[in-house]
Amino acid sequence: MKRLDCPSLHATKSQRMNYIKYYNETDFPSYLPKLNALYDDLFSHGKGFRSKLVALSAKHLKLENKTHQLLAQTIEFIHNASLLHDDLIDRSHLRRNKPAAWLKYSPEYAVLAGDYLLARVMVNLSSFGNLKLIQYTAEIISNLLEGEWIQDSLVNDWSVNLQRLDQVHNLKTASLFKWCLRSPFISVDIYDEDLHELLDNSGAILGLLFQRSDDLLDFDIRNYEGKAILGDLKSGYLNSFGAFLLEELKQKQIDPFKNSQTLDDVYKAIGKEYFLERLKDFDSKNQALIDLYEHYMSQLEESVHPSVVALTKDLRKLSGLLYWRDSKQ
């Protein structure tokens, strides 16, 4: 099993690749053709944010290395399984700037590889033996799939509203963030209901902020990494910022908007001034969410668990970091 030392900011690409590669040879039989190659492609170049979130709690709870490894592997397996399936469902050609697995290998292998990751999650968690953790993880996977199902039904729906999308993102993105915050506590049999509710609320907000920030990237807002833009729009999917932009527009403006191929097309369709005004409103809306997150952090600080109080100091920074994508915020 690969060691789990968190690489520093100056780690080499190879060190970072090793850090993300949370599997060993017994998880994936070498006699299955192309399976390990597919996973090598999949797991490399990921940011591993979710496993880093797990690492925060693991540090403060002083989890055993084996438990930390299991939790980090579980969340990365679940997340990457969803990416394999998502890319096939959306017919996305690229994942992390490389050809998507379904294109490079085959759609059948992409589906099976995703299923296999989820199966390994259940095998590994069962060996660990914490029934509540297994139950909770199964619920999260179920939520994730429900969110994916609903999201697929919204393709080419250009009038979907933000509240509906939030419900979908709560099931998809936010579920995993909630898991990252709660599972370390479950793994060491801390089941305090009040604590878990707070972690749940906090995880939900982090997930929503992460998703909304990602959706803004698609419109080249705070796109510091220079990712390809308008991918959602071109796939026929209206993301949260897109839905917010179109909320008050008439059909004659929506039609050219949905056919936009470049940002200039978007500005021509709805007006650059309007776009920037709505961006300001969207940012205010999310700042209110950040304030709400801050409220939950204050409540967490009043917890009786000393590890929670220490963890809160680290968690506090995340909301601004995730949304504004600038560590200086």
Partner: peptide, 10 residues
């Protein structure tokens, strides 16, 4: 409408 989340249900 093909989903309870579709705008057609709003």
């Amino acid at each position: 409408v093909n989903s309870s989340f579709s705008s057609g249900v709003d």
